[in-house]
Each structure stands twice: as C-alpha cells, then as structure tokens.
Write a protein that binds this DNA or RNA. Structure first.
Lengths: 150, 150
DNA sequence: GACAGATCGTCAGATCGACTGACGATCAGC
DNA sequence: GCTGATCGTCAGTCGATCTGACGATCTGTC
C-alpha cells in the first residue's frame, strides 16, 4: 500500500475536514471490528444493545431515533440480535403497534463484556492525543453534533 | 426526526467515539453537499480534482493511492469527471499501461471556485469550537490518522 | 360507538460506495 | 523472447441506507 506516499504528498487532503473525518472513522472501524470480533457483534450492533440496555425498555422506533438510524434499518438490526438470542421482541401492552425490545440475559452479559473491550479499544485509539486532549477531542465532537444550527 | 430526544437520553451514545465520528461526518457530508451543489460535484469528486490539480500529473493508481480509494473505484470517479469535461485521460508515454489524468481548463477553474466554497463551509462547520480550538481539532485528526501503530 | 387520519413494524426494491476476481495490454528482468 | 508483475477495466457481490407500500393498531372527532 502506498500509504507513506499518500501522507508525504497529501497536503491537499490532510487539510480537508471531510477526508480526515472519513479516514479516521475508517481506521476506528477497523480497530472496533478487531476488538469486538471475539464477541460476534459489530460496533453498530453493540450500540443497539447499549441503547436497549439503558434504564427502561423502549420500542424499536424509539431506539432507532436514539441511534439515528431509519426505522427500516432498525428492523434488520433487531432481527439479527434476536436471531442470536441477545434481545427479545414483545408486543407492547399499552400500544400494540409497538415492539418493546429488551435484552435477554445473554444480551446483558455480552453487553457488559463487549463494552469493556470497546472502552479499552477507544482509549488506545485516542492514546496518541494524550489523556487530557483525548477528553477534549470527545467534547469537541459532541459540540459539533449538538450545536448544529438547524 | 427525533433528534432532540436522541441527545437528551443518548448518554450511552455520546460517550462513544464511533457514534460521534459517524454522525459528525454525516452532518459534515450534508453541509458539504449543500455547499458544493452549485458546482455539480460531490465532495469526493472535488477531492479527486484537488489531488489531480497538485503540481505534477499523476496516474490513476497514484491518485487512488493518495485518496485512499480502490483502483476500481477510481475508474468510476475519473469516468464521471471526464464525462463532465473536468479532466482528461491520456496514455502515459513513459509507461503505456498508465493513464495520466490531468485537469482541463474547466476543471482548473471549477477546482478553484469549489475549493473556496468548501473552505468557507468547513470554517463555518467548525465555528462552534472557536478559532484556535478548530485548528487544534484538525491537528488531532491528523495525528490519529498518522500515528496508527501499524 | 364508528370513521378518518396518523403511527408502528415490516417488506420489497432502488441506490450508493466499496471490494473481489477476472481479463487484456503493457512493462521489466533474465 | 519468456515469465511474472503492474495498470486500467469490467462484471458481480456485499453492506448500509432510503423510499414506498402494506396491514395492524391507536387517537381524535362527530
């Protein structure tokens, strides 16, 4: 791979926010895949588990809203997790249009263990920045996401 | 879109580097699309133009290497730009396996104007961070991309 | 109560980006 | 002049996303 060359001459690119974000994200995705591989879930799926594992049980649509994915995407995501016995769908008693999705015991367990691995991976990923700066970096990202003028 | 709800309860998510990067990138992509829409090129395509517009003419594969895209992806990218008369392929005289891709005058012109728009858009996008911090943010991204331990 | 309009989950289909594997043309080393 | 590698191309695949439609269900209004 001509990666070294890429960095040597790529000034035009490493000035670009789009390029940087995309490739940093791609690299993180690789690390994430490696770190989560023993658990048999992707980063996306782990995020779904994390959202569903919060305090109260929520519907598919609510989960989709939090995750920022389409409701049709959520169907496939929950399908996959249910097939692996990590979550359970049941019809809501209050509103029978809704599927309430809850973690199974296996799901809870996997969530805990995989989250540890993810946290370790992220810490290592941000290590080049140094501790305080890593925290700052996360805050900056949160800021960019929150304060969109729309 | 239930974005506000997403932020209110999404603590589990806004702690996640993967979630943050993905969604910040998505938001930037939207802004980028809007900013470049008058020019008829996508952010990807503008990046290709920028790489090809550097000092010396380069081959498709070399360009692909810099951009970090597959060589088969590069074919389609250059196809599109050539169809619009922004670049020209010609066989290299030194190595006739290679396509040397160069900007046309139209391509040069569009590159200049669209790059201005992109720079403005990025500055505005990073505005919530404040000037010095925005610069710091870019440096952090570059660092994460450069210092991968591999 | 019954009906109209909205909401939720589901599915089929389209799109888009990226990759794999193959191919012909060309180059480089022996 | 051969053999093996490289470059560009194309076809096919895969994953993630969205659109549009549908049935089931809820809510508000008369």
């Amino acid at each position: 791979m001509a990666e070294s060359g890429s960095r040597a001459t790529g000034d035009v690119l490493t000035q670009r926010l789009g390029y940087l974000l995309k490739h940093v994200q791609a690299r993180l995705a690789e690390e994430s895949a490696r770190a989560l591989e023993p658990f048999g879930v992707s980063g996306r799926e782990l995020a779904v588990l994390a959202v569903l594992g919060e305090d109260r049980p929520i519907s598919q649509l609510e989960g989709a809203g939090k995750l920022g994915v389409d409701r049709t995407t959520m169907v496939a995501l929950v399908d996959r997790l249910e097939r692996d016995g990590l979550v359970e769908r049941r019809r809501s008693e209050l509103d029978r249009r809704k599927n309430v999705v809850a973690l199974t015991e296996r799901g809870e367990d996997l969530l805990r263990r995989a989250e540890d691995a993810r946290r370790r991976m992220e810490r290592e990923f941000l290590a080049p920045l140094g501790g305080a700066e890593a925290e700052w970096f996360l805050r900056a990202l949160r800021l960019l996401l929150a304060d969109d003028s729309r």
